[in-house]
Design a protein around this nucleic acid. Structure first.
Lengths: 339, 339
DNA sequence: TTGTACGCGTTATCAG
DNA sequence: CTGATAACGCGTACAA
């Protein structure tokens, strides 16, 4: 079962390896006859060009990289990331690219893994997710001239290729939506405070409060990781403060919203009668629970798709340096807010 | 920003490229002096060995492949697959392997994509998920001598490397568990009938019925895809039949169980008072819904881990041809069954 | 202990 | 239209 190479094909076809190479790339100045002949032999021999050898000579792998850090991985439990991957996988497939996924244990190894993936020459570019404040990774990537696209936002750099949803605006809209429904005290359960996405959403929330003449206090906000248990604990903390006046909890992630709802139920509250809960992202689970979750719809898969598309374009078109794509969001009004 | 190669290092260190190569692989018969010297220069130049070139000469890529077909991708929405990937990613990371993920649009392209991934030389081996009855892929892979590990089971071949959970036994246990609780008419919502996993679980269910002297009828079973909407419809069909005597619905996947619960609730039933619903897999969602789902716990992530470990071992140890690892399951008794 | 020469499978350049 | 040759970056016999 030895590997058959371009030479084997060449021999059997009585042509040179270069000719075979040319028919592979469908070079126009090769006679139809030889093309047919060589193609037949390739079929007969069940020949497949070796991607590695091609990569070596072409200096490109046709593969994109994606690194999941542990926080991200934990968030892997969060359906958000599956959806992004799905979108990425779709684009790469369409463009005949491949996708390499790498897990990291923590933020530090995530940094190293990511850089390594590129410097080892395994990938032509990288897709970054979940950027934190002060993200060294991005400046390093810029330094070594590594093509990348960020899903999210990086405050230190304007003008980097990225796809994001309008987080500030979306959180504003949801907050405003609740206020217009009569809410006047909204507590917040946020993701980790060093994530840009958290900060942006908090900002939108605060702005909306302000514009509606409502006051904000730090006691109204609790931070959690992007997982269920953490969200549950955050809700418990909120419960310890005086929740009597709070009429809504705005969770900055659906999973967090679900944990809040369950914590509330466990403590004897009815949703949304006693207190409303709304989420963010519109992940599948939003529709699965009872009552169904009111949330902000973010086209996650679409974001993954766009990011991969942009990255591939950056890699292949040197006159193109990426852009900022902001995907619109939309409030999905279901059953967990107070009307 | 040009690439620096082994030659650059060699020049700067006044040694030959081969010496540098030996330093990289920590060859024992190289003087400590030159090792130190070369290593320092590698650091200074920020040199990274090119993985592609290495792959070409070593004839191995150190990467594993995983293909998701559309049905699988749809199931990508199903958390099952995220968890498996997570497990795989963990093993590959620990063993310094990489993971390439590929999406396919349907069963046919899945077949081609998979074969191609290997024949193109991009991966050293493959992890297969969700095997169907009469899976041509497996025999093809055997034919071309491609190392692979199956997560699941393939009835046509005994003796192929795989990791699985004891589906028959697990479904038996759950059915028996319900009967012992007093249930005597259990309906089933299964995954697609051409998946082995469906057949195995159905078999366990039937066996348990039989052993308990209960009768089985075809009207008691509905088939669905592994997604929510499909499960909902299947439940509606069940509802159209005479459900009056049915006291439990056994869904062969948690997501299906959730859809069944919601469909039942939408039709005025109370869970578990009017009818019990139990699931399979113990995915995160099982704990998130209200009431919490009674289900069979399958250590999904663990299965991914084991599969990747086995595959890597198969690839590197030619005296090892894989084995069958059956991971035990466990009933998680929560709130959706009738006591 | 280290250097030389060749090969891994392919593509690109230059002849013819 | 086609063939020889070099090169991509690295590992490894073989030689020294």
């Amino acid at each position: 079962m030895k590997k058959i190479t371009i030479k084997d094909v060449a021999n059997k076809a009585n042509v040179s390896p270069s000719t075979v190479s040319r028919v592979i790339s469908d070079n126009p100045n090769i006679s139809q006859d030889t093309k047919d002949k060589v193609r037949k032999i390739m079929k007969d021999l069940n020949y497949h060009p070796n991607a590695i050898a091609r990569s070596l000579v072409n200096q490109k792998t046709n593969t994109l990289g994606l690194v999941m850090s542990r926080p991200t991985e934990m968030a892997f439990a969060n359906p958000f990331f599956s959806e992004v991957i799905q979108g990425i996988a779709q684009s790469t497939k369409e463009r005949h690219y491949h996708l390499m996924i790498s897990a990291a244990e923590n933020y530090k190894t995530e940094y190293e893994e990511t850089i390594k993936l590129y410097k080892d020459g395994r990938v032509d570019g990288l897709i970054l997710m979940a950027s934190r404040v002060n993200d060294k990774l991005i400046s390093s990537l810029k330094d070594i001239n590594c093509p990348f696209v960020l899903i999210g936002r990086c405050p230190e750099f304007t003008d980097i290729p990225r796809v994001d949803n309008a987080n500030i605006e979306a959180a504003y809209k949801m907050t405003d939506f609740l206020v217009k429904k009569g809410s006047n005290k909204i507590a917040l359960i946020s993701g980790p405070s060093d994530y840009i996405v958290s900060r942006d959403r908090i900002k939108g929330y605060k702005n909306a409060l302000e514009d509606n003449g409502l006051s904000f206090s730090d006691e109204l906000i609790e931070y959690a990781e992007f997982d269920y248990d953490s969200g549950y604990k955050a809700t418990e903390k909120l419960l310890k403060n005086d929740l009597s006046k709070v009429d809504h909890i705005f969770a900055l992630d659906d999973l967090l919203a679900v944990s809040a709802i369950n914590c509330l139920i466990d403590n004897g509250y009815s949703i949304p009668e006693d207190i409303g809960v709304v989420g963010f992202n519109d992940q599948p689970i939003a529709k699965y629970i009872n009552p169904k979750l009111t949330t902000v719809k973010v086209p996650i898969q679409e974001m993954g798709k766009k990011a991969a598309e942009m990255l591939i374009k950056i890699i292949n078109d040197k006159s193109y340096h990426g852009e900022e794509i902001i995907i619109p969001t939309q409030i999905i009004s279901r059953q967990t807010h107070r009307d």
